[in-house]
Simulated scan of single mutants.
Amino acid sequence: MEAKSKIYIFMDEEVRPLAVVTAPIHIEIDTRKLVDGKHILKLVSKDPSGKEGIRTIPFEVRNGPAIAVEGIQEDAVVDGVVPIMINAYGKGDQTSFLISGSETPQTIPFWVWILLICFIAWSLYYLVRYMNLPVVDM
């Protein structure tokens, strides 16, 4: 019988492994049991000869409701009165999608206004030019 490598699975800074498995293995990590935020999955493997390998995989859990903020950004320098819009919405579960509250209303960006004004000006220019053309009788 062929000896196989053992894999020790650790989460964050835990000293006791979540599981000790024999390679290869398929596992599922239930992120609903983890708090939202940054985590590190640490895998330590030991082959039959006793050599060790380590791999760390940083990831971020975001199971809670999403929070959208408009009007201020991270590390912004502000003064005076700053209007802020805050929206929070959950994504439901894996089987259904919540449509209500899942979209954050946003202001129209300035470049959209500029494009709209340019389009209207262009349309008026050609409308005025078309109306001033002389009619040619044949």
Rank of each mutant, 00 (worst) to 15 (best):
A88G: 04
V135H: 00
I40P: 03
D79G: 10
I54F: 02
E52P: 11
M85P: 07
A19Q: 06
P134I: 00
E13H: 13
N87A: 14
V128G: 08
A23M: 14
E60P: 00
W111E: 12
M1L: 12
S49M: 09
V44H: 04
I99S: 11
G101H: 07
M131W: 14
I40L: 05
Q94V: 09
V20T: 06
K46D: 11
G92I: 05
Q94E: 11
G80A: 04
V61C: 01
V135M: 04
A19W: 05
R129C: 10
V69L: 09
T22V: 12
D137G: 10
D30R: 06
Q94G: 11
E28V: 12
K51W: 13
E52T: 15
E103Y: 14
R55K: 12
S123Q: 15
H26A: 09
P17D: 02
T95S: 13
Y125K: 08
G101W: 06
A3Y: 08
I108L: 05
V21H: 14
A88E: 02
M138T: 08
V69R: 04
I86S: 03
S96T: 10
S123I: 09
F97T: 12
T22F: 14
V128F: 15
G37Y: 05
Y89L: 05
D93M: 04
I67E: 08
W122V: 00
V69P: 00
D30L: 07
I25W: 12
H39W: 01
Q106R: 15
P105S: 02
I117G: 00
I57K: 08
K42N: 08
S100K: 10
I72E: 07
I67K: 09
E2C: 08
A121K: 03
K33S: 09
I117T: 01
C118Q: 15
Y126E: 01
Q94F: 11
G53V: 09
K6W: 07
Q94T: 12
T56G: 00
R129P: 10
V61R: 00
R55H: 14
V15P: 15
E52N: 13
P134V: 02
H39M: 04
G90R: 09
C118T: 15
I108M: 04
I27Q: 12
I9L: 01
K46Q: 13
S5F: 07
E103K: 10
L43V: 03
P105L: 01
Y125P: 05
L43H: 00
L18P: 03
I72A: 06
L41T: 00
K6G: 04
I99T: 11
P109D: 01
S102V: 02
H26C: 08
N132V: 13
P134L: 04
H26V: 07
I57N: 09
V21C: 14
P105K: 04
G90P: 01
Y126Q: 03
V82W: 01
I108R: 02
E2V: 10
W111M: 14
F97W: 13
K4P: 12
G90N: 05
R32G: 11
W122Q: 06
V135D: 06
F59Y: 02
